[in-house]
């Protein structure tokens, strides 16, 4: 038996909305520690890792580890039916191939029950090493989204260069070139407005912009985004979900053969 209650159904709705274009089907692994999902996009270039800790839920019960394969577009259809301030309760048991989403209005006057069919998904889980990164940049998530969208109108790829003074994003295309340079900014009123650059050694990497633009759909989930880079390694783009976990996106670099 699995049962979990979230204060805001809107949170899970936003999470699924942010990843469903990248991965259409995925298996949620449920255990005593929480709900986890790891899936590659269909071209196997990027990877999404979602972790929702059990202590971030209002109620969490998983008697034994349990896998729930879901079509994320179908899941999104149901989550869209939740009211803005509804609570969400998820229930499933191994006896039937269904997960139930219960949406309850704040005054308890409306209770909606949606049952989603679970599916068997064969997926390869990858072990992600706990690596030290050469450079870590934290910046407002809206700023990162603006940069990748702006550069997406110029070129297909972005060259990211981190030095101790700044992080540079550069793109080139048929119409010309663009470079956006962000300096470290620590003296801000709100911590989430900071741009923080931690550099062990300078890095310079190139990535396909369309994936980064896709990752930035998670912007509304967190005010700040953390980008971790090491030479010839996938970039990590992390959105922290306050009090419950994170969504991490990994993207393999483009490397000259």
């Amino acid at each position: 038996m699995f049962e979990a209650q979230m204060a805001q159904a809107a949170l899970l709705k936003q999470i699924i909305e942010s990843i469903r274009e990248l991965i259409t089907e995925a298996t949620f692994e449920v255990s005593g520690t929480g709900m986890m999902l790891q899936a590659m996009d269909s071209s196997h270039v990027s990877l999404v890792a979602l972790n929702l800790r059990s202590d971030g839920f209002q109620l969490f019960r998983a008697d034994r580890p349990f896998s729930m394969g879901m079509n994320l577009n179908h899941m999104a259809k149901m989550l869209k039916c939740a009211g803005k301030d509804d609570t969400l309760t998820m229930r499933a048991d191994e006896a039937n191939d269904l997960v139930t989403f219960l949406f309850e209005s704040p005054g308890n006057e409306r209770l909606a029950e949606f049952e989603l069919k679970l599916m068997d998904i064969t997926s390869e889980n990858l072990g992600i090493p706990d690596a030290e990164y050469s450079a870590t940049v934290s910046m407002p998530s809206a700023e990162f989204q603006r940069i990748v969208k702006d550069l997406g109108s110029i070129g297909d790829t972005v060259e990211i260069t981190v030095t101790k003074d700044d992080v540079r994003f550069a793109a080139s295309g048929d119409i010309g070139n663009a470079t956006i340079k962000c300096r470290q900014l620590l003296d801000t009123e709100k911590p989430e407005d900071r741009t923080l650059i931690e550099m062990v050694e300078p890095v310079n990497l190139t990535f396909a912009l369309r994936y980064l633009i896709n990752f930035s759909k998670a912007t509304s989930l967190a005010p700040s985004v953390t980008i971790k880079l090491s030479t010839e390694m996938p970039v990590v783009v992390e959105y922290k979900l306050s009090d419950i976990g994170y969504v991490r996106f990994y993207l393999a670099p483009k490397i000259e053969d």
Binding site: L126, I128, Y250, E256, D257
Partner: peptide, 14 residues
Amino acid sequence: PPGQKGIMNFFTKK
């Protein structure tokens, strides 16, 4: 696409 590596080149299968 040229030069685009797959993510499985970097992370091992569990």
